[in-house]
C-alpha cells in the first residue's frame, strides 16, 4: 500500500511517499504565499522520486500550520501526533521529541508505543522559533546557512538580556556598536533561543532519548547550545525536516 504525508509548515511544505512501511519518495518546496500550490509541486516531486502516479496513492494525510491547504488530502493529523508517529518509526527509543520550526516550537513526550503522553507548544512568540535566528542573522548580516557554523568559532560568552526578538535585534545592534566580535554575538543568540526551548522542554520533562527535529535542527550552533543546556546527547534524524511528513504518511497507513 502506498500512502503520502504532507507537512505544510510556515516556511516549507514537505511531502513523503510511504510504500509498505518504507519511505520511497520525499520532496520539499517553499510555502511562499500560496501553500496549496507549493503542496501540489512537492507532491508531484515526491511521487516522481517514488516512481508512481497520484492514482497509486491510497490515502493522503496532512499536518502542519497549513494542514488544511492541500486540496488532495484525505485527512489531517495534528503536528504533535505526526511528530510522535514519525519519531517512533525512525527512533523507537526516543521519549522526548523537540521540534523547532520556522514559527513554532514543540516539545512532546512519547511512550514506548509512540503514543503522546504530554506536550507543550509555543506558537505565540518568535523568540522560541526559527524566526528568531533568522531575524538575528539578518541583523548581523550573515547568511542563515553560515550562521550556525560561524557561532561555533566563538571563544567567549556574551550575555543577552532581551528575550523578545524585536528587542534582541536592538541589543544585537548595540553589541555590534560596542565592537563585540560577531561570532560571540551569534553564539549569544543561539544560547538565547536554546534557553527558550529548554524551558519549554522542561515543562513536559526531559526523558532520554531526546530527539531534535524540524528545520532549526540543521543549525549546528543551536544544536551545540541546546546540548549544553540539556546536558545530554541529542538524536538528530538525517531527515530532520521530514519527521512530521513521515508521521503523517504512517498515520495514513495505520488508518488503512
Amino acid at each position: 500500500m502506498i500512502t503520502a504525508g504532507i507537512d505544510c509548515g510556515a516556511k516549507n511544505v514537505k511531502v513523503v511517499i510511504l510504500e509498505d512501511g518504507k519511505v520511497t519518495g520525499k520532496a520539499m518546496a517553499p510555502a511562499g504565499i500560496d501553500a496549496a500550490s507549493a503542496a501540489e509541486k512537492a507532491f508531484d516531486d515526491a511521487l516522481k522520486m517514488a516512481g508512481c502516479g497520484r492514482e497509486a496513492v491510497t490515502k493522503v494525510v496532512s499536518t502542519g500550520t497549513g494542514k488544511s491547504e492541500p486540496k488532495f488530502k484525505n485527512d489531517i493529523v495534528t503536528e504533535v501526533g505526526a511528530d510522535a508517529r514519525g519519531i517512533h518509526y525512525l527512533y523507537p527509543n526516543v521519549r522526548t521529541v523537540i521540534d523547532v520550526g520556522a514559527e513554532e516550537g514543540r516539545a512532546i513526550r512519547v511512550d514506548e508505543k509512540g503514543k503522546v503522553v504530554d506536550f507543550a507548544i509555543n506558537e505565540k512568540c518568535a523568540a522560541g522559533a526559527g524566526a528568531f535566528t533568522e531575524a538575528m542573522a539578518r541583523a548581523l548580516e550573515i547568511p542563515l546557512e553560515d550562521f550556525g557554523p560561524f557561532s561555533l568559532t566563538s571563544n567567549q560568552e556574551v550575555p543577552m538580556n532581551a528575550q523578545c526578538a524585536v528587542f534582541a535585534e536592538s541589543e544585537v545592534v548595540s553589541l555590534v556598536h560596542r565592537k563585540i566580535p560577531k561570532q560571540d554575538i551569534a553564539r549569544a543568540i543561539h544560547n538565547a533561543i536554546a534557553d527558550r526551548i529548554t524551558s519549554m522542554v522542561r515543562m513536559v520533562g526531559v526523558t532520554p532519548d531526546v530527539a531534535l527535529v524540524g528545520g532549526v535542527a540543521k543549525n549546528v550552533g543551536f544544536v551545540a547550545s541546546l546540548k549544553e543546556d540539556l546536558q545530554m546527547e541529542i538524536t538528530i534524524p538525517e531527515d530532520r525536516e521530514f519527521v512530521g511528513a513521515i508521521g503523517a504518511a504512517f498515520v495514513a497507513a495505520d488508518a488503512k
Partner: peptide, 17 residues
C-alpha cells in the same frame, strides 16, 4: 491575531497582499 510583533508583521504583510 498574532501576539508576537514578528508574527504580526508577517500577518500584516499578508493582509496588505
Amino acid at each position: 491575531s498574532s501576539t508576537c510583533v514578528v508574527f504580526a508583521k508577517s500577518e500584516a504583510s499578508g493582509l496588505l497582499r
